[in-house]
Nucleic acid binder design. Sequence first.
DNA 1: ATAAGTTAACTCACTAGTTCGTACATAGGA
DNA 2: TCCTATGTACGAACTAGTGAGTTAACTTAT
Lengths: 213, 213
Amino acid sequence: MSTPGDRQRDADRTRAEILDVAMAEFARSGYAGARVDEIADLTRTTKRMIYYYFGGKEQLYIAVLEKAYSEVRAVEKTVDVDHLDPVEAIRTLAQLTFDHHDAHRDFIALVAIENVHRAEHIRKSEVLANLGAPVLDLISRILDAGHESGDFTTEADAIDVHMMISSFCFFRVANQHTFGALFGRDMTAPEHRERLRTMVGEMVVAYLKGAGR
Amino acid sequence: MSTPGDRQRDADRTRAEILDVAMAEFARSGYAGARVDEIADLTRTTKRMIYYYFGGKEQLYIAVLEKAYSEVRAVEKTVDVDHLDPVEAIRTLAQLTFDHHDAHRDFIALVAIENVHRAEHIRKSEVLANLGAPVLDLISRILDAGHESGDFTTEADAIDVHMMISSFCFFRVANQHTFGALFGRDMTAPEHRERLRTMVGEMVVAYLKGAGR
DNA sequence: ATAAGTTAACTCACTAGTTCGTACATAGGA
DNA sequence: TCCTATGTACGAACTAGTGAGTTAACTTAT
């Protein structure tokens, strides 16, 4: 039997199912390479319904991006900057970023794809503007504390530090295939995980302590 | 009038022109997004000739990859490791890598695209195997010298160090668009160039000196 | 309570346009 | 005459998107 509201819930579930499948498909094949028919075939619904719910391929793709980014924000909220000394705080943030990239491969692929398209779709979404602000604020506070305590001697910009951490974590996942082909090592294999995780932490700390000059 | 050999030279020039245009087109639109007709229209030749010379879209794409990678190898040969102390040698290598990525945007885009396709095309080309060996050898020698001189205290693996440098340089170019959209800063803009170039050098040096622990 | 009306969710079949690739004819040099 | 190089036209398969009508839940008037 069915109760009132079942239809709405079913529709929401269908929407969510489409989004999940579409995310995997776009991440696997890119925007142009992904097929709407393929996405439809992998769901319990039809292509017509994808158009009914999302309007078109591009809007579906944007919806996927929004979902992926929203799942991801507020990772940095886990860093308890006030109860950690600056060195441990920045190391923790770096390793959290590492873990996060490690756990969200599809998201990484989508970001890489979106860069191929010069971020044209992200720019069409208001939901995704200024999503970076929280991390920058966190890093700024850590940097200030580190300079005050004397732990950090390098004058660094929060955006630059974020870029340094992100680049390491992102590259390891995003470029695993060509890197593996060229150097014969899968950076994402379990046996390299802990070493690289430690490395990203030591890298930022060493840089901020200022031993590079 | 025509001399013997003209035909061959013309054919080579046509091949080269197709490759140039195709490289730009694939870099701009990705593999699936690139259009053979579009590439043909941008050359003085026809689509028929692309198929005549290269056989198909995929073979053309692989030829583009081979050309791009071959243009790129032997950057590291410029680092005169024997006449530089280890600290300056690794810093120089890092900044040379930075310059290189800065100057070859299309190549970066192709690598990113190839990773979306899980390096399936690179693996089909024998030309591109073990292309990474020279840099690793160079880094190994720098690391050995640095440990001997006492400048480096961190025990580091050559591949890891290469990854650290590459990730920074690659990310700055490859992710400029989404990063710009999220943080409101174009990492590739002239006003950030020198600072980031210095940064990558200080980053490796600081890490290898071992201040991170 | 129930008939009539309304709307969201859904199906099926179809189309207009694209895109890779090729068949065929031809030109000109060796 | 034979071979390489090339232009023209075309086709087969694919692909995003739609037109039109159906079903079933919900609402409102009586």
